[in-house]
Design a protein around this nucleic acid. Structure first.
Lengths: 216, 216
DNA sequence: GTCTATAGGTTGATAGAC
DNA sequence: GTCTATCAACCTATAGAC
């Protein structure tokens, strides 16, 4: 008992927590090794550099989440509803993620353009986003492909913000918003974003589309 | 002609651009003075510290935006619709903000909990959020106060994400999402978030509210 | 694999001449 | 107000003993 995880895992755990709390650049390797109670040099032994560590920390969590999303998406069958698709996307992060430090980390990973994260986003998120956009497009045949992607962008933003502010939300709202009930949180999100996706395109866009169609 | 702004303004402009692009901690004072073409010591002369500079940079932009939001909110009259209220909130950042470097900056300010920004959020955003939550609550009498704040949180997240990723969006989506037409962007957002706000509360929440009401 | 020691660079901030 | 010069603290990364 009291089997302390190996050094590599301890570093990943500590980095995950601190990166999520303070951000990537504000967290030094010394912060991490202090939190993990390991030697400073161990970081460069197990991971070559701070950048590699950041990538490892993020990928360890993002990969299973995104795999699970695709799994749930396939499980929705032939003609899923919008809500089915949204659930496949949101359940792995809102309901199934039970390590509290992961949510802020993923939030930051999605909220920091320009970071080296661009590569991760391209490899880990772009293909996933495309699969979900296709599914949503089939469920919403009246929306143009661009409109689907725009709305997806809005939803990802809302979810990202939720992941990142969840630890502070209850205090910030004076106890009004309690995020401990994950199932309720999921339903709230599905209701809100589902209604957004199902809303008809506004006239201006319809006109644009019409013009484009006329030109062909 | 060629009237170069004074040093203080040049520093604010450069810091705004770089903070928005790279984040607060990743931007050094030397980066800023190089971009502004001023002397390093000028930063500590005009602003006492890097933290003060960060605060000044953010407040210079947030204050007029939030003032304008309240102005537009009051202009909606006695019984504004949900869309009216959303427009009052979104127009100042999506349509009227015509300095391209400001959007990413505000996005980062909203996407970085734990930063010293907590104070700014408390002083600059909390009162504003409350005013808008009240207006939305009156326009949506079937929603509980908590539900209104949750949905507001989703919307702020979507807007924040939009502000931050706008410069990269067109390239990321292969040209599918063009954010140069601000009026269209505003309408897209109003349609999406408006529908989300107007969606009925899901059953689980209604039950909760009922139980709370019964207890009193 | 884990440690100490340290190299080599960058950071924020300031003192003091002009 | 603006500059040069500099400090002390911090950083990442590595070399080499155990």
């Amino acid at each position: 008992m009291n089997d302390r995880p190996d050094t590599k895992t301890r570093i990943l755990d500590a980095a995950e927590k601190l990166f999520g709390m303070k951000g990537f650049d504000s967290t030094s390797l010394r912060d991490i090794t202090a939190e993990a109670e390991v030697n400073l040099a161990a970081v460069n032994y197990h991971f070559q550099s701070k950048d590699s560590l950041m990538e490892a920390v993020i990928c360890r969590r993002i990969e299973p989440v995104n795999r699970r999303r695709l799994e749930l998406l396939e499980a929705t069958g032939e003609n899923p509803t919008v809500d089915d698709i949204l659930r496949a996307f949101l359940v792995p992060v809102i309901v199934e993620l039970n390590i509290s430090s992961v949510a802020p980390l993923l939030g930051r990973a999605l909220a920091d353009p320009g970071q080296f994260l661009e590569r991760i986003i391209r490899t880990q998120f772009a293909p996933l986003g495309q699969r979900f956009a296709e599914a949503l497009g089939r469920a919403l045949p009246d929306l143009s492909p661009a409109e689907v992607v725009w709305r997806q962008h809005f939803m990802v933003g809302g979810m990202t913000h939720l992941l990142m502010w969840r630890p502070y939300l209850k205090e910030m709202t004076g106890g009004l918003c309690d995020s401990s009930d994950r199932e309720a949180l999921l339903e709230r999100a599905v209701v809100f974003f589902g209604a957004g996706f199902r809303a008809p395109s506004f006239a201006g866009v319809a006109q644009e589309e019409h013009l484009v169609a006329e030109r062909n």
